[in-house]
Design a protein around this nucleic acid. Structure first.
Lengths: 142, 142
DNA sequence: GCAGAATAGTTCGTATGCCGAAATGTTAGT
DNA sequence: ACTAACATTTCGGCATACGAACTATTCTGC
């Protein structure tokens, strides 16, 4: 079969298993996966203007603003006006948010460990290799 | 870095690009991606009991029932009671639904073609190979 | 320096998607 | 016949998403 068709065919298969992995690995978390991604993005950057956050997460500004609302209500982040450009809002993690993200990261890695322990060492290697290749090639499409 | 950590790190990266691909490839479709997946699942099987549909799509029965409602309202599928087991509901595609799914499939493959044309032949091969490997390995985890 | 454009964010209405609990109907087991 | 198990639907509730309309701020051109 032609490459393109094969890719079109495999896409939903991959998404299905990736979704399954997510639900296993993020099982029992206090945050949804999307909230986790947002908090992680802010945490990794130290702080993040809202418009950049929306771009990184590939969602509309309005959606990003609403998600930030929820994270603020949960006490994990806070907003400040950028004094250098008062139109802009910068999001920071609170101490509580940073603590959470560290805990979650640890837990997630542990869950991956448990999940992937079912695979022979060789397949783990191939998995990492495929992940790296995907990230590399698909990254160039953006 | 340890395999597990690398996988945990790459997962969101992959999901991000895969999401980007979805939004490009399914751009301008009359159905959401989830609706497309559901319609495709029914189409590929010819017909599908609701409970199987929910299992395949990895969603709760109640969610599946609601999604079927929407597809019924759009005129793409219909429900019938299984006379062999009157508790069970079987979903069928309508002619309109089948026509749509064939059109969408064609359009989607075309969009993949345009998108992936940016990649050198060699990277296309590597991409297919990685997809195959992922599908194979992750499939064993289920 | 000021009018109008551009930028950044928020709020609102609407829709999808998702879940669990409760209710309904159907079948199977004893 | 009674009860348990099964299949589905409906309901309430929440997260996510978008675009449109609105406010506030900054930039640009004249």
């Amino acid at each position: 079969m032609e490459n393109i068709e094969r890719i079109a065919q495999l896409y939903p298969v991959i998404m299905r298993v990736m979704g399954r992995i997510r639900s296993i690995v993020h099982e029992g978390m206090d945050l949804t996966y999307n909230q986790y991604k947002m908090l992680l993005t802010i945490y990794d950057k130290g702080s993040c203007p809202l418009n950049l956050l929306a771009r990184e997460l590939q969602i509309a500004m309005s959606s990003a603003s609403e998600m930030v609302d929820r994270l603020v209500n949960l006490g994990f982040v806070y907003r400040t006006v950028d004094e250098g450009n008062r139109r802009q809002v910068i999001i920071y993690t609170t101490d509580k948010g940073e603590e959470l993200i560290r805990d979650l990261r640890r837990g997630i890695v542990e869950n991956y460990r448990t999940l992937l322990a079912k695979l022979p060492e060789r397949d783990q290697e191939r998995l990492v290799q495929s992940f790296e290749t995907l990230a590399e090639i698909l990254g160039t499409l953006e």
